[in-house]
Computed example of a mutant assay.
Amino acid sequence: MNVVTAPTSTIGRQVVQNLLDAGEPVRVVARDPARLAPDVAGRVEVVVGTHRDPAVVAEAFTGAEAVFWLVPADPRATSVDEAYVGFSRPAAEAFQARGVRRVVGISALGRGTPVADRAGLVTGSLAMDDLIAATGVPYRALCMPSFMDNTLRQIAPIKNQGVLYGPIVPGLKAPSVATRDIGAVAARLLRDDSWTGSQEVPVYGPDDLTFDEMAAIISEALGRPVRYQQTPADAYKQNFLGFGYSGAMAQAMLDMAQAKNNGLDNGVSRTPEDSTPTSFRQWCLDVLKEAVDA
């Protein structure tokens, strides 16, 4: 049995679909089962509740061969540690108590870089990985840079202003990754019973691009001019406070962006084995253009 947490999230739903397409049995942990796609709901077991709840994870992980672990965003958390490590403690105990044989988790690039200990959400993710690895359960932490799919949050300014906004230095080359590729890697590892131990698995797309280059690619894919504009640090944090983030989590978003500007995502040497197939250009043609045209 494969257990998938956060099954209605962008990545989680793709993990579920990949496992079902492969004929694998799937159990999901869902706070709101009504959000499951109709063609999925009838093909999976459902444990209702949050995977922060000890009773919920104890039930969900009973008889589980593999678990896909994704901590949902908590913009109102009192601290990054609480958002990631605190959330994951009940699951870490249940991995051991319920005899789970392998766990695949969503994490981030950056371990070993000089800025990893002050990188906001990334620092929390790496501490979560340490917590899970310490249980002794075989663990693969999928370590990603920024998601290509985050661009979908900016459909309005792209359409109405011809501008892509972000906190990253315009000329900094860095990797990115499509969530569909993350879902494919996660499903493959969940189905593979040959690996043991704890290990980080970098997952990124085939090319490193600056945000200026990404804006140019978006322009070509959409057939309209789009430029990149860097958002000042103070304004970037204020945006999150305006969205209802706690002060700690708004600062964590800024800390992560500043760490990326200081090389957080560039600390791992690219290898063919770690690179995924979807380029940013292909993602724009397949996903962004459809969303903008809708």
Rank of each mutant, 00 (worst) to 15 (best):
N2D: 07
T5G: 11
T8N: 13
T10D: 14
R13F: 06
R13W: 06
R13V: 06
Q17R: 13
L19H: 10
L19A: 10
L19N: 02
L20I: 09
G23V: 02
E24R: 10
P25T: 06
D32S: 11
L36Y: 03
L36H: 01
P38Q: 03
V40A: 07
G42A: 05
V46N: 06
V48G: 04
T50H: 06
T50G: 13
P54G: 05
A55D: 14
G63A: 05
A64Q: 05
E65S: 09
A66G: 11
F68M: 06
F68G: 04
W69L: 13
L70N: 09
V71A: 05
V71M: 02
A73C: 08
A73G: 11
D74W: 04
S79P: 07
Y84V: 00
F87D: 00
P90A: 08
F95K: 06
R98D: 02
V100G: 02
V104G: 07
S107G: 03
G112I: 05
G112E: 05
T113Y: 02
V115D: 07
D117K: 11
A119S: 14
A119I: 08
V122K: 14
G124K: 07
A127S: 13
D129K: 04
A133P: 05
R140I: 05
R140E: 03
A141V: 03
L142Q: 04
C143F: 08
C143T: 12
P145M: 10
S146N: 14
F147G: 02
F147D: 10
M148Y: 15
D149R: 07
Q154G: 13
Q161G: 09
G162I: 13
Y165A: 06
I168T: 08
P170C: 03
G171A: 08
V177R: 03
A178W: 02
T179S: 11
R180W: 12
R180I: 13
I182A: 06
V185M: 09
V185L: 14
V185C: 08
R188V: 04
D192H: 04
D193E: 08
S194L: 02
T196Y: 05
Q199M: 14
E200N: 10
E200P: 04
V201D: 01
V203L: 08
Y204M: 15
D207T: 14
L209H: 15
L209Q: 11
T210Q: 09
A215E: 07
S219F: 14
E220K: 13
P225N: 05
R227H: 10
Y228A: 02
Q230L: 09
P232I: 00
P232L: 02
L241Q: 08
G244T: 05
Y245T: 09
M253Q: 12
M253I: 04
D255K: 01
D255W: 07
A257K: 04
A259L: 01
A259R: 09
K260M: 15
K260V: 10
K260T: 11
D265T: 12
S269K: 10
S269C: 07
T271G: 11
T271S: 15
P277D: 12
T278A: 08
S279W: 05
W283G: 01
W283K: 01
W283A: 13
C284G: 12
L285D: 15
V287N: 03
L288E: 13
L288R: 07
